[in-house]
Amino acid sequence: MNTMRLTESAVDTDIKITAKDVQVYYGDNHAIKDVSVEIQDKTVTAFIGPSGCGKSTFLRCINRMNDTIDVCRVQGDIKIDGEDIYDKRVDPVQLRAKVGMVFQKPNPFPKSIYDNVAYGPRIHGLAKNKADLDDIVERALRRGAIWNEVKDRLDAPGTGLSGGQQQRLCIARAVATEPEVLLMDEPCSALDPIATAQVEELIDELRKSYSVVIVTHSMQQAARVSQRTAFFHLGNLVEYGETGQIFTNPVDPRTENYITGRIG
């Protein structure tokens, strides 16, 4: 299966996100050091590494969620489609509409399932009327692979769903605003194996339309869902390449130590 993906990913080489010499500081703590990476479009890219290695921090740089943390400073260039997202003219709100995010813990709004998904399109004015909005919600829920489970109870609160359903609802909410990049911060860490399998299947499906970046603690998951993998260690990007190559033939000894379970 991995070999098949290798050939597949060799086809699309469009670069979606380019990061160059990115430094992130939390106060005096230098959390990300000189990270340069090129993330491809229509690809699932996995960030792996031990806890505290900066993979989530780097992920949050891509949609500027780190702006909400007062002590956090970001230096260096991150470009999406050649545009510097840390340019003064860029409004982070607009950026986040383009770069959706799914969080570690399912965090549906304490509102109805419908309102959860409709919120993004509503604030961005994506729907002209109610019927339009209904369509968007249905499409998003179908893409979140949860439509069949909730279509009869769209008015029920989103918080009443099971953990796996909540996470898929959050993914549906993220795709409802038609983003170009989807960031996922350990989306399955709070889920059981069955829900995890459903979400992973969904991620593979989403790859057709988006550039997906996923942070995960599970190396098996990275191997299963991603085409490219980046290994972070102590704030450094140690190795970045085809998933198959990272897991079968790592160049750096630290990568090898990590994937064989000797560090982390």
């Binding site: 949609n63 969620m65 909400t68 709100v93 607009q94 986040r96 509409a97 383009k98 959706g100 995010m101 799914v102 969080f103 813990k105 965090n107 549906p108 709004f109 304490p110 919120y119 993004g120 604030i123 961005h124 959050c170 909410r173 993220a174 409802a176 605003t177």
Partner: peptide, 14 residues
């Protein structure tokens, strides 16, 4: 919970 704020910011709310 901060996750609610994250969720709103994550879908592009100001």
């Amino acid at each position: 919970p901060p996750s609610i704020r994250d969720a709103a910011l994550g879908v592009g709310a100001s």
